[in-house]
Design a protein around this nucleic acid. Structure first.
Lengths: 122, 122
DNA sequence: AGAAAGATGAAAAAATCTTCTCAGTTTGGT
DNA sequence: ACCAAACTGAGAAGATTTTTTCATCTTTCT
């Protein structure tokens, strides 16, 4: 992760300009608009580098597909559209999440995921 | 899913006696205590049948591993131990989860997942 | 501009997880 | 007890997703 190539710039740009978590496949499709011919291997290699460098963090969501988003964002949660499969970011956090922790258990974090139809698919 | 075999009884019993969602691998290990030599293919076949029959429902959780739990339980959420990997059931539901839904989006359900250490691993 | 190290794309290989195949076993009905 | 249908275990085969390999380009430094 040392050189500045158009592939890496394109992938980084995709995350800077897209306000939702992306899967490797989505990254490939979005970045190909800037770098035609971009390979999936490069996407995986670059994602790995951006994770190590701390630019990205993995998003913990149900459903096999791993997704990544920019690190450093405010605490937030996600909405998964069951029609188009896209994940959106939600603002805010419900009250009393930590109150669900049973005695003796130690909670280190939580994720809230809403399911349904996004505005485009409703 | 018609005959009553000891394999199927064992797998069903495992779910009746275990108060947490189980992955196919966990089912295999727990059921082998009753039926030594139980095969993974039988676990998958039986899980499929129990899902179709409505005895089980899939649990939507982050992390590739699919898990299943008995259907018909009251609305609840889950705790995933990062040490041992087990998933536990939590009682209750935070206030205001549905309030996070953006205008134009249609929420059909939600999942709250807490992460941390279970009482055995804390 | 030239050279060396690094990066890329395509395809092969790996790593997983789930389903299928099939010979042998078990179940349920008679 | 007998039989046909259903089920099982083991391994092969599939289906996916991610990583590796390698010959060929690019970037960066001099």
């Amino acid at each position: 992760m040392e050189r500045r190539t158009k592939q890496r710039q394109a992938i980084r740009s995709v995350f800077l300009e897209t306000q939702r978590p992306l899967s490797p496949q989505e990254v490939l499709e979005l970045a190909r608009a800037r770098v035609p011919g971009l390979g999936l291997a490069t996407v995986y290699r670059t994602l790995k580098g951006l994770l190590e460098e701390g630019f990205l963090v993995p998003v913990e969501l149900p459903g096999g597909t791993p997704r990544y988003e920019r690190s450093g964002e405010a605490h937030h949660h996600h909405f998964l559209c069951r029609v188009c499969g896209k994940v959106y970011e939600l603002q805010g956090c419900p009250q009393g999440v930590e109150a669900l922790v049973p005695p003796g258990f130690l909670a280190e974090g939580h994720e809230v995921t809403l399911y349904g139809r996004c505005s485009a698919c409703a």
